[in-house]
Amino acid sequence: MAKVEVKQLLEAGVHFGHLTRKWNPNMAPYIYMERNGIHVINLYKTVAKMDEANEALSKIAASGRKILFVATKKQAKDIVAEKASNVNMPYITERWPGGMLTNFVTIRKAVKKMASIDRMKKDGTFNTLSKKERLQVDRLRAKLEKNLGSISEMTRLPGALFIVDTMREHIAVKEAQKLNIPIFAMVDTNSDPRDVDYLIPSNDDASKSIDIIMTQVTDAVAEGLAERKSEKSEATEGKKEKAPKKKETLDKPEPTPAKVDTKPTPVVDKVPNVTVDVEATKEAVKEDKKADSADSDDLTKIEGVGPKAAEALSNGGLNTFAKVAKADADKMKEILTEASSRMAHLDPTSWPKQAKMAADGKWDELKEWQDSVKGGVE
């Protein structure tokens, strides 16, 4: 992924903020100066924050979670729809349906309704309806396609939200905060950066500015998807290579027994002095810790566990599905609350149940369960 330069952002007008009288004081650290009654954004901080956001988005994409892009303003909707569809990610560009995240089960029912209408048209049931009924069904199908067609492939809650203009999409922000879903956003000088986990200070009104930021973001997502694809191909190749090796060991003749030395072993009179190498011991402990982190599971596959919650659980010793399955919900609640007060509202009651299914490899059963519940809460 080619890193964007400050000059490119300057040419795209990313530095233009809002009028000084409309500013949010919390954006002061990201404002460079004021000129002609307009705030100018510090583009060096924009580049730094963009790199941070892109790294996090790439990791989420590599983990297999979906990233939902939200932009309903006129100058952003076409750009976001194009860029998000290029990386096969869901997006909302018409209207944010209330309860899109907090009442996800009902939204999924509406999407399934769209699929059932398509089946009616294929099997001929649609033709048996009266002209008026066919017209009503067609109108319903068109309405559902307009509002929810872009999220038809999103069968579970997204791993993150990317929002253009948090002031306009304040309902989406509130729903994501309630479910502890990480929020990435283009934040202008009139918005509150405290509502966002990963902000990119930038002009969220100009189409050129939105285009250049979205290009960088979707490139990072594409990089994460490519990394996931390569890991899968390496895993399948590794399995293929291991299979013939087992066959070879079966074909080998049995080794001849070695001659047994009947000579008596000498008795050691004195135990030799053993010196402990402290530095070598420390290195061994470090290696063990590295091995533990390598053996950890992707806990974000549990519904309700975001990247920050997964990190907190791993730091608390619950870094695998098997450990979470045996853990007590109250203990997990304590770990999350100690890590961050923002995670105090999380309900880990169903996490051991989900982790047990994941540990047993029952992914289809886990997916079916996650689709049937509301935000991972039964």
Rank of each mutant, 00 (worst) to 15 (best):
A185Q: 00
N86G: 10
A284C: 01
D195P: 01
T337M: 06
E241S: 11
M214I: 00
R65G: 02
K333R: 15
N86R: 15
M167S: 06
R21F: 14
A358F: 12
G159I: 01
G317M: 13
V274L: 12
W369E: 11
H18I: 09
N42L: 06
P182N: 09
W351S: 09
L250H: 05
H345G: 10
K59H: 08
E169S: 03
E237S: 13
A344L: 02
L366K: 04
E175R: 01
E169I: 00
R108H: 05
Y30T: 08
V373I: 14
D297P: 01
M33R: 06
K286N: 11
E254H: 07
K252H: 08
A359K: 05
T265N: 13
P272T: 01
K246W: 06
F104E: 04
V217S: 06
G124T: 00
V173P: 05
F162D: 02
T300H: 07
A322P: 09
W369A: 15
V14L: 02
S293W: 08
A355P: 07
K121R: 14
D292F: 11
P348R: 11
N26K: 15
A53S: 14
A62C: 12
A312L: 06
A325L: 08
T215W: 11
P201H: 03
V260N: 07
L19K: 12
N42Y: 12
N24V: 04
Y30S: 04
I60T: 10
D197Y: 04
A310P: 01
K132S: 15
K308N: 05
N103R: 10
E5N: 09
V373H: 14
I200N: 03
A110Y: 06
V80I: 15
P266S: 10
T349D: 13
G316C: 12
M214L: 14
L157A: 13
D360W: 07
K353T: 13
M167D: 15
G149D: 06
E231L: 15
W363H: 05
I38W: 15
E145N: 09
E231V: 07
P272Y: 03
K301H: 14
K282R: 04
N88S: 06
A294H: 13
K174F: 05
P352E: 08
K356R: 15
A280H: 01
E11D: 15
F69R: 01
D251Q: 08
K263W: 05
S230W: 14
D188P: 02
H345P: 01
W96T: 00
P29N: 04
G224R: 06
D51N: 11
M154S: 06
